[in-house]
Design a protein around this nucleic acid. Structure first.
Length: 560
RNA sequence: GCGCCUGUAGCUCAGCUGGAUAGAGCAACGGACUUCUAAUCCGUAGGUCGCACGUUCGAAUCGUGCCAGGCGCGCCA
């Protein structure tokens, strides 16, 4: 709709220049916007305001010229000049009604578009270390990352979902020591307890299972505990497998799936880490100091250089990260998006600096990042404190079990990633109109219920070509039609900016318009034609609600 | 001290990348169920958009400087 108007205004400008009414020869970008105030029409443009200077004319005068040169058409019903020089358009109701058959014909694919044109994109998200269960922060990352994948997919991208396991660093050694300590019956208060050991109950559980020689299945492999508390390597393998299985189950319960799991340990085994270091050194971006090998990240915008290889010979964490991202690039992903917690934002500069220093033809802004801010959990009006080391924190699993998958996902994506999120457990659990998830799902269920009643009464859903669209004319009906029409561009914007919350906002607005319609317009009436028209409209609303919910990985119940 | 994020109604947050009188939900107050699901709807009230300059026809939005909060600033990951 906006595109059609843009073309119309563009044609008017060209014609005005052709007959000499406009002289500057400067053709501005034509921005068509939707006024906040419906009294200002369906669409508005400010081109006349922008051209005032170059044309040396009053904006309102330019607006007159543009209007005088607008081509005739069936789209626009009225045009007027307002305020300092806005041009306001009103679109014919017939034009709005035409979106409805399109929606019904498109069905599950309404809202899809093809901006991605089948190009490959890889999205890495969650990437939790296998040292504990997934917590609420990972949950936000999982919900945002998964939704971004879905949004990219419906806008035409070929998406690969990837999870990276840091299974090779000091944290894993720490995990193994912690489990070993539990196996040996050492308590956290004991002086023999490992420094910075993980104290959560889950460590105790893993130790118990290891001693009981249980078998865990993770990543397509079985790992069996040997029961030997002195075999640290066996404990490590068992512990990592246990926690990976745990995380896999949590993610499955959240309906989040990955195409590829990458292991940090594999990067060492494959020699990719050494190769990356060698290449960085050959390119002359490193130097030795204080017994360590440094990367000159300051050449690439960092505020200080960073150690790559420690004096003890081990690599710092960002080195395998660089090797990993080089591998992503070599796998052919010219577009990569990393979804992470904002507490790790300092890695961005380092990883990008390392990639630039490799001189591998990787663009400067690659990879892209989506960072989400912290989550605070409220229960009973009080903040639930999180302490990972002490093991007292709300896990993703607890949350899903308590408030349900749909509500959990909805709440996690309801705010833009840049904003800190307050997760109110009591509110998320509430089955009332306070809870936005139920509000939206209820709208869908309500429509399904009406359609069901219609079938029982023998009312017939018209075919898209035969719907009596002209019977849709009340204010509520027109508002719904106009808002349905805007869904595809909402999806595109949401995908482009990595802002899933635009979809929840759209859903709430659409559900609100529907509920408002419902309370003032009866669908099943004695007037067969009117009934058919309204049934057809509701079908379009239900399709759009369901598609939008699907983009968030949330169900659209037919009964509540 | 430096970097990133945030600051909009009592609370939680939108604000479509510079437009018209700044919006929604909740909370408060007042209404609507013999009608397709009241898990709903309608109305009222609520604001120096953190503060100050600047950019211009026009700023919640862009720039600079302050103020406040969060997160980072390891030879931890």
């Amino acid at each position: 709709m906006k595109e059609q108007l843009r073309a119309l205004v563009g044609a008017a400008l060209v014609r005005a220049v052709a007959d000499g009414a406009l002289v500057s020869g400067v053709l501005p970008d034509i921005v068509i916007e939707t006024p906040a105030n419906p009294d200002h029409g369906d669409f508005a443009t400010t081109v006349a305001l922008g051209m005032a200077r170059a044309e040396k004319k009053a904006p309102r005068q330019i607006a007159e010229i543009i209007i005088a040169h607008l081509p005739e058409g069936e789209l626009v019903s009225s045009v007027e000049i307002a305020g300092p020089g806005f041009i306001n358009f009103r679109v014919r109701n017939e034009a709005w009604r035409k979106v409805l058959p399109d929606i019904v014909r498109a069905g599950a694919s309404y809202g899809r578009s093809d901006g991605g044109r089948g190009r490959k994109v890889q999205v890495e998200f969650v990437s939790a270390n296998p040292t504990g269960p997934l917590h609420i922060g990972h949950g936000r990352g999982a919900a945002i990352g998964d939704t971004i994948c879905r949004l990219l997919s419906v806008t035409g991208w070929d998406v690969t979902r990837e999870f990276y396991y840091n299974d090779a660093g000091a944290q894993i050694a720490n995990l193994a020591l912690s489990v070993q300590a539990r196996c040996l019956g050492i308590e956290a208060e004991d002086p023999r307890w490992p420094a910075d050991g993980y104290q959560g109950d889950y460590i105790r559980d893993v130790g118990r299972a290891y001693l009981a020689k249980e078998t865990v299945h993770a990543d397509g492999q079985d790992v069996t505990g040997t029961g030997d508390p002195d075999d640290l390597e066996a404990i490590r393998r068992f512990a990592v497998a246990s926690l990976r299985r745990e995380q896999d189950q949590d993610l499955a319960a959240f309906d989040v799936r990955f195409d590829v799991y990458s292991l940090e340990s594999d990067l060492y085994i494959d020699g990719r880490v050494d190769a990356a270091v060698k290449r960085l050194t050959e390119k002359g971006h490193t130097y030795e100091k204080d017994g360590a090998l440094w990367l000159k990240t300051t050449d690439f915008g960092d505020d200080k250089d960073r150690v790559m290889r420690k004096a003890d010979g081990g690599y710092t964490y960002f080195v395998p990260d660089v090797a990993y991202h080089l591998a992503k690039w070599e796998r052919g992903f010219t577009r990569v998006i990393n979804e992470q917690g904002a507490d790790h934002h300092s890695t961005i500069t380092r990883v990008r600096a390392g990639l630039q220093a490799l001189d591998a033809g990787i663009p400067q802004g690659w990879p892209e990042y989506v960072l989400h801010q912290m989550v605070t959990v409220m229960r009973g009006g009080e903040e639930v404190k999180i302490s990972k080391r002490a093991g007292s924190y709300v896990t993703l699993r607890d949350l899903i079990d308590e408030v349900g998958r749909d509500a959990t996902r909805y709440f996690f994506v309801m705010r833009k990633p840049d904003s800190q999120l307050v997760f109110d457990i009591d509110l998320a659990k509430e089955q009332s109109n306070d809870n936005p998830v139920y509000y939206v799902q209820y709208a869908h269920a309500r429509i399904c219920s009406i359609l069901e009643n219609a079938r029982e009464k023998g009312a017939v859903m018209p075919a898209p070509d035969a719907a009596p669209l002209h019977r849709l004319e009340t204010a509520e009906e027109m508002a719904l039609l106009k808002y349905l029409a805007v869904f595809p561009e909402t999806v595109e914007g949401s995908a482009r900016e990595f802002e899933p919350h635009r979809i929840t906002g759209y859903l709430q607005e659409l559900a609100g318009l529907f509920h408002g319609f419902y309370n003032r317009n009866r669908v099943l009436t004695e007037d067969g034609e009117l009934t058919a028209a309204r049934l057809f409209l509701l079908q379009g609303v239900a399709i759009t609600l369901k598609n939008a919910l699907a983009m968030l990985g949330i169900s659209a119940p037919e009964r509540m």
